[in-house]
Nucleic acid binder design. Sequence first.
DNA 1: GCCAACGTTGGC
DNA 2: GCCAACGTTGGC
Length: 161
Amino acid sequence: MFNYWLIKSEPTTYSIDQLKRDGFSTWEGVRNFQARNYMRDVMKVGDLALFYHSNEKPPGVAGVCRICKEAFPDFTAWNPESPYYDPRATSEKPIWVMVEVEFVEKFPSLVTLDTLKRHPELQDLYILRSRSRLSIIPLEKKHFEIIRALGRQEARLLHVQ
DNA sequence: GCCAACGTTGGC
DNA sequence: GCCAACGTTGGC
């Protein structure tokens, strides 16, 4: 039984296009306990995740990736040179974890936050709450599939709606 | 263990 | 660039 996720990244930091080029990538730098716990305790190899571009105009879901390696220590936390440095973390007590994701698909058109907000079946989602800050968000399968179906539509069809 | 202050996220 | 929301910290 797989889980479904939405994971956020600022495309200036790491985008779906970079993941497509790279094929797979570590997902480091998560510095929120709830998000860490989801990665550490729940995420499994094979889980699918929507790749959300935050802090972009417009923000939205850009594609899909798959978890290909389960949680392991986020070593960027104990590197003073890293923007994700956390002086409390050590190799003995890593505090933070990361996973690895692999590229699955890029949608022909971004599913914008605005589109999600307008969709009648997506009204209760955490990501639609104003300034929801969690960067790793569990989704129900049906919500994942609705959003993926929106993403797979041609851009021109979305504009007609 | 409460809660004010602070820092960050992220839509606008 | 603004600023509301909210997770986290730290004084008490």
